[in-house]
Amino acid sequence: MIRRRFNGTVDVLQLKDFATQLRRDSLRMVHHAGAGHIGGSLGLADFMAVLYGYAMEFDTENPDYINRDRIILSNGHTCPPWYAALARTGSIPLDELASFRKLGSRLQGHPARKSLPDFVETSSGPLGQGFSVANGIALSQRLKGNKTRVYCIIGDGESQEGQVWEAALTAAHYNLGSLTLFVNDNGLQIDGSTSEVMNVEPLDMKFASFGWNTRVIDGNDIESIVRELENIDPNQGKPTVIVGKTLMGKGVSFMENRSAWHGSWPDAEQLKTALREIGNSRYYTDFSITEAENV
């Protein structure tokens, strides 16, 4: 089934519910894997929910659908809500989420094109690289005359990489209006707060001076995300950056705004508390983890 770009009326409650489930899935995935990056993942869930629940055009049956919008998760470590969104929209089997980070899994700890070529446009992990690849896809799509959108997600810490600014030059120089960059800007990175480790703010002014359209929003507010994505005019000849102020660990009190949760995962007790705080979805049920897998 083809999901059209910005199609129909927005059901904010439904999108929020979708984000809730992406959070539940992410928590259970990293807990089951015994490894992963839950902090940034929880902060990204709302943007991911809007992309897959409303903004992006794709075909659930045909991953090669020519008019599909592209998503590049340049900070690949926040992949759990992405994998969950793929599963919840029927692109990959739901129970496959339990294989995250396991030997032989298509759901690698950092997204791998080799193992999931239908959905992962580019392998990402070394920061800064996905952004350049996103530009390349957007340039190629324009050369072919396709009117698709390209969404690229980076972290605020990621923007310490020089290649981010190389790619920012390219997108502006080539007037890539079809490209939207979302900065999952939670102000934290592994070693502490971004402002202490290596300050990157004000990101919006930096991008503006590079020739970009810029927006700063609450990146965990579904309505703001919807509004800003709807407002983008891909024909204006400028790329757009949405600096989404997000909360690391959003939705789980003991994880929120703590850099220790960048690369950690909850133990059984913490998972129970976290899931209770996140709450249940009205539409979805949790994916199953078989006894054999649950070791």
Partner: peptide
């Protein structure tokens, strides 16, 4: 000229951009 891309002095970005083009079916 429409298939020639001047990337400026930034080789890492150039290789990444080319990878994106290749992934989308071009031969860069």
């Amino acid at each position: 000229p429409d298939r020639f891309f001047q990337m400026g002095i930034k080789e890492s970005d150039m290789v990444g951009t080319a990878a994106g083009m290749a992934i989308d079916g071009l031969i860069p």
